[in-house]
Design a binder for these strands. Structure first.
Lengths: 206, 206
DNA sequence: GAGCAAACGGAACATCGTCCCGTTTGACAA
DNA sequence: TTGTCAAACGGGACGATGTTCCGTTTGCTC
């Protein structure tokens, strides 16, 4: 639907239809998204807006100007993080020692993203259709990226090749359920074990 | 841990071990539970404590004295409502025109209870074990009561007899998911239809 | 570089959770 | 029954957070 379309060529929509924002406004929006993503990871999606504004170095009103409700902010961060994950895939593959190392780092970023994703689910309880659209968009964008990382690692003989990207991402997602504010459950560690478990016995240490 | 133990033999702990509370304290606790249950139904489990205190006719500090955290209050209301549902079953059966009418009214009370139950799930995200214990307690207590209502209605020839209490309660529970603060989804109406759908064609109007 | 509208920052305000403290009240013994 | 005291109470104070307002700044355009 229009959601996925808007998401795909988002910037075109904005620079095309809208009367073009001022440069500082565009800069602040991006700064806010980065700040919010970082704060969400450490403090959850219910973190005080003051904290986010402070990290971004802007006033609280600026957040309201760009994102009228918290749901708007979370959705924007969600899209922002998906784009970041899409770009991070090839970059990590090119910049890491081995494909498996790249996969591990990408999954780590993916775990960060899941905080936002789960927060989004909590915020969008009432909007089943909207959430489904965002979920479909998330799958469309990230499954291929994860698939390419898996494929590269499998081709290099580092990991077993019978694991689909969808299956892996579901597994990671499930490991992270209910891990917020729970000191007795370290999802990230378990995810690390899962990724480590993908390795084939004869693979070299990275 | 102690939570699950308290869940199993809750009242015994209180009347047995504790040095017996003052009469006004016991009275206020009960009043608070009733008030909170009512407020939860209309405003959800996140309702301001002031509202609950006001309805109960007590000060806000009194809530903290009885229930240090909101989770404690929700858990206590949860137990309180379960006991109320257990007692309501036979009472409705005795006082209603037909078993089917009693079943309908009981399910209506059950829907009220689900607001608390779902709120409890949200609050106890981190305490998987504690929630499981409370969930098991809920099933232990209510499935037989609902079963007796179903049985009575089936024996009276009012409803089909191939519906288990567990299945019905699950269905009702699922109908009520995500219905909070959602103006486009009237769970109670759907539940009514479900209960109406139980009737056998030849059953007399109640 | 001058003017204007857009955008900004931070303080003011409103709401809610939490805690404290002076007062009231129920329980129990004399 | 009455006196005593700890338990319980009410409500206001306080801190944290969401939201809005307004004077100031900043980036576009001519």
């Amino acid at each position: 639907m229009s959601d996925s379309q808007a998401a795909r060529d988002g910037q075109d929509d904005r620079t095309q239809a809208a009367p073009r924002k001022r440069a500082d406004a565009r800069r602040n929006e991006k700064t806010l998204l980065d700040a919010a993503a970082a704060i969400f990871v450490t403090s959850g999606v219910e973190a005080p807006l003051r904290d986010i504004a402070a990290r971004a170095g802007v006033g609280t009103a600026t957040i309201y100007r760009h994102f009228p409700t918290r749901a708007d902010l979370i959705i924007a961060v969600y899209r922002h993080q998906i784009e970041a994950l899409v770009e991070a895939g090839p970059a990590l593959l090119a910049g890491s020692a081995t494909p498996h190392a790249a996969l591990g780092r990408w999954i780590d970023l993916f775990v960060d993203f899941l905080v936002t994703k789960h927060g989004l689910a909590a915020v969008l309880q009432s909007d089943e259709a909207g959430f489904d659209a965002l979920h479909a968009y998330f799958l469309d964008r990230l499954v291929p990226v994860c698939g390419r990382l898996l494929e590269a690692a499998a081709t290099a003989g580092e990991i077993r090749s019978d694991m689909s990207a969808l299956e892996l991402m579901r597994g990671v997602g499930n490991l992270c359920i209910g891990s917020e504010n729970n000191p007795h459950y370290d999802a990230r560690r378990l995810v690390e074990l899962l990724i480590a478990g993908l390795r084939l016995p004869h693979a070299q240490a990275e």
